[in-house]
Nucleic acid binder design. Structure first.
Length: 615
RNA sequence: GCCUCGAUAGCUCAGCCUGGUAGAGCGAACGCCUCGUAAGCGUUAGGUCGUGGGAUCGAAUCCCACUCGAGGCUCCA
């Protein structure tokens, strides 16, 4: 965007004739303004809401200096040779006009040939030109600056509810909590090697970077897609069991919709922006928008509450800073289960909050992360704590170990209480998995209303729960955990229900291939992922390859097996070779994967038919 | 976004300091072997040395810019 800014005694302009088809519909009459700053503005390709905001804040600033409060926005194409489309230009001008409501703002009509008379003042600040781009550093808005100023008080709360400062607390028995506390409050980092999951996600043919996309947008190979699908299915099933109603909402929204504009004003986002036909669209960074806009259109009574809407976003987008993107830990496009509960009052919200806490805890264990793998952080305002001590203490008691507390003197965010489970990885980094928040602001912002017992409209309190956190991040945690196992001399493995291959058959000689195929077929009709190494390789080589793929059950088939009831089964978990019948094996696998979703093998059953994805 | 480091065959890496026709292992193709619980043997193919520019008779190697990745800083509503 280019701006020529002039402090004037007066300007008088007259629309003469329409210059373009999309010119504004106006009554072409002359207009004279005295004591005014005129901003001649050319909207350029790539300009967006951020540029508009920045332009207005710069204009406002310089107007303060010259002591003038009256602004005229004057579309002026000739300042630039790479103009935006007229429709975009007009909508950005309108946006600037609405952003400048603190001033007496007016706007010359767009798309008209105008004649004008102008009398510019003669002082040193009277004339000024600006070039404004989205990339400039200064685009961080006041809200972001304010956010960085809020003061946090850090404590550790023990299971008996006792709070000690992080300095007082004895971390001897809680090394991971210490890592989290240091990570969050002191921002201490000490890492000099890449996180091991990055290597593993490639090696195990789970996922990889896609250079043709933007950074942080991953591709998932068949194995990765399978693992991801299973976790997605599991989380969705559990949330629906809890009572979440699954919905689907658009991935992009109009930045100028009143609810969005208000939200951005308060919480400026790092979002992907798309300009299309004059609309400034942004890619969602959570499912909130879609679900709130949907709930707003529902007719709700207190009898319908709590109303629980759920969506698994594929994808949510956050344009994180490039330096912060790592493997599957921090992405720009990610899959986020997001379940909102609209509650009629704080009592109901608190009751629901408890249920979701239990759900999240169950879920995170279900995907294969033990309590020792993660640490809880809980954040609240001082006021909320004083009024709701018992709720907070109850949650800590449920976790059964001390948690990190962040307390704010005043509320800045839209929530009064928030907790997360943080996975602590090999490099001592903490990443949030499950989380829930009590939101007392967005019900009103989005005009979500229900009719209460007294026939009065009310805004609900909204809970924001991601019961597992981003699915990619769950996979990251599982891979980091596997890397840790390797480091400690244990064999790494996926939980059996997530293993891309659960059982592998290896024939001693090609003549036993048919028998292997029949067994694999039998297992797959029983919903077990079994495959066959039909390559002409030595038995030793085939076993080695199966071990490298972390396959839980490896079964070598030869003369002995064909003629006997039992097979010798190499079990990765115990490390032993055991003799089991097919039926006993099926039963064992069924028992271990009970209550978990199943999907069929996502690769050809025969190894010789598979592409080599990662060596 | 800023600072530091890196990018060589499908994968993992050597070569770079000290410029002179591009190397290994794994993987792939083909052939031999027909095998009992972590790598059987041989042959062959495979590389604009991340991209673009510069200095040089000559660049994977020296210089600059960019892209992508890693670590740190910042950020994570």
């Amino acid at each position: 965007m280019r701006i020529l800014q002039l402090h004037c005694d007066s300007i008088e302009f007259t629309p003469v004739k329409r210059e373009i088809k999309s010119a504004e519909e106006i009554e072409p009459s002359s207009k004279k303004i005295d004591e005014v700053v005129v901003a001649f503005v050319a909207i350029e390709e790539g300009d967006n809401s951020i540029v508009a905001k920045k332009a207005i804040s710069e204009i406002t600033e310089s107007m303060k200096k010259v002591g003038c409060n009256r602004l005229l926005l004057y579309p002026y194409a000739h300042l630039s040779s790479k103009l935006a489309s007229p429709s975009t230009a007009l909508s950005i001008l309108k946006e600037m006009e609405s952003l400048a409501q603190d001033l007496q703002v007016s706007r010359a009509p767009f798309g008209w040939t105008k004649s004008y008379k102008i009398q510019v003042k003669g002082h040193p600040l009277a004339e000024n030109s600006k070039t404004i781009t989205a990339e400039d550093k200064d685009s961080t808005s006041d809200a972001v600056k304010a956010e960085s100023k809020i003061k946090s008080y850090w404590y550790i709360m023990s299971t008996d509810g006792k709070m000690q400062t992080t300095e007082e607390f004895n971390f001897a028995k809680h090394p991971n909590l210490e890592v989290l506390a240091k990570y969050e409050s002191a921002k201490k980092r000490s890492v000099d090697e890449p996180p091991p999951h990055v290597k593993l996600m490639k090696k195990m043919a789970i996922a990889d970077y896609e250079p043709a996309s933007d950074s942080g947008n991953m591709r998932f190979f068949p194995n990765g897609r399978l693992v991801k699908s299973l976790i997605e299915r599991y989380v969705t099933d559990k949330v629906m069991e809890y009572g979440g109603l699954e919905v689907e909402t658009p991935i992009m929204y109009d930045s100028h919709h009143p609810s969005m504009a208000s939200y951005f004003h308060r919480f400026p986002a790092r979002q992907y922006n798309i300009n299309s036909e004059g609309k400034q669209l942004f890619l969602r960074f959570a499912a909130c928008f879609g679900q709130f806009l949907m709930a707003k259109d529902f007719q709700l009574s207190y009898k319908n509450m709590p109303l629980k809407l759920y969506e698994l976003t594929r994808y949510s987008f956050r344009k994180e800073q490039s330096g912060e993107l790592v493997g599957l830990r921090r992405l720009r496009a990610f899959t986020m289960p997001d379940c909102h509960a609209m509650c009629k009052d704080m009592d109901q919200a608190k009751e629901e909050f408890r249920k979701r806490f239990d759900l999240s805890q169950e879920l995170i264990k279900g995907v294969g992360l033990d309590e020792s793998d993660w640490e809880m952080a809980i954040r609240f305002t001082e006021e909320f704590y004083n009024e709701n001590k018992s709720l907070i203490e109850e949650l800590v008691k449920k976790i059964g170990k001390p948690v990190l507390v962040e307390m704010w003197k005043e509320r800045f965010f839209y929530f009064v209480l928030k907790w997360e489970f943080n996975y602590i990885d090999n490099s001592g980094k903490a990443s949030a998995l499950s989380t829930d928040q009590i939101d007392i602001e967005n019900g009103k912002r989005y005009n979500i209303e229900f009719i209460d017992e007294n026939n009065k409209p009310q805004n609900p309190i909204i809970l924001h729960n991601s019961p597992s956190g981003a699915i990619e991040r769950v996979i990251y945690a599982l891979l980091e955990k596997a890397a840790e196992d390797t480091k400690k001399g244990r064999k790494p493995q996926f939980p059996l229900w997530l293993a891309p291959t659960q059982v592998r058959f290896i024939p001693v000689k090609p003549e036993f291939l048919d028998y292997c195929e029949r067994l694999a077929e039998k297992l797959s009709t029983d919903n077990i992922r079994a495959d066959v190494d039909d390559r002409n390789e030595s038995v030793g080589k085939s076993i080695r390859d199966a071990e490298i793929e972390w396959i839980r059950y490896i079964i070598v088939i030869g003369e002995k097996e064909v003629n006997a009831e039992k097979m010798s089964i190499r079990d990765r978990k115990s490390g032993n070779v055991r003799d089991l019948s097919v039926d006993d094996l099926i039963k064992e696998i069924k028992d271990e994967t009970r209550d978990k979703p199943f999907m069929r093998l996502n690769m050809n059953r025969n190894l010789s038919k598979r592409p080599q994805i990662m060596v």
